[in-house]
Amino acid sequence: MKRRDFLRNGLLIAGAVSIPGLAKPFLSKNLVTGTSLTIITDDVDKAASLGQTFFSKMNIKSRLKYEDYDLIGDHIGDLVFVKNGVLFDFKNSDKSDALLLKEIATKLHLPTNFRNPKLVKFIAVGDAENSDKTIKIFSNNSLVKEIKLKKELVSFSVEGVKGTSEFQISQNGIKAISAPCGHKTCLKLGTASIVGDSLVCIPNKLRAVVYGNGGGFPDAISF
């Protein structure tokens, strides 16, 4: 088994709410198009600083977004660099980019098993037309799932502080189909499909947010 496949399978097993056939590991290159650096680490400040140093030496013309999220449970810390949509196999390369990435991995002691680590992402803002939408699902402010919109209809459940909420994902977006709280406001919000839109269940402390890295999406939605 290739090491990266092993890593992906390991993450599927270790994921907080992984669902066979649906969940993608947070380091999957399938979740991004364009150029991005994703790191799972226990030292978020150092990762952010090293990531900045890395991109300062790259010739990236577009704007860069930075995000980090808490992850729940055990995860294998590692880093993935995707350049122009292609996974960069830095571990088997002697290019200058690869050397910098190896240095980051060394300084962050990657790969290592971490409990409740952080997910750090640098993403180059691309063209909206070519940008895939992904859904990020948070439980109590921790990222528990990141999924690309799918052509087929898929249902899945996520644990919140009050119980299990069920969501349905399709090509159009994500909608809540059941919630354990009394209010059920999230069920009335319909399908969230626009980048920046979200479904929020305050009592269950869950939220699903539609992301896109294209430059043409609004920066926020007023509702």
């Binding site: 900045q52 991109f55 300062s56 990236i60 704007r63 860069l64 977004k65 930075y66 995000e67 980090d68 640098f122 803002v125 948070f138 109590n140 402010n141 929020v200 305050i202 402390k205 939220r207 947010v209």
Partner: peptide, 11 residues
């Protein structure tokens, strides 16, 4: 010279 759009969200 590189600027970043730093994104943070919380309930």
């Amino acid at each position: 010279s590189q600027t970043y759009e730093v994104y943070v969200s919380k309930n």
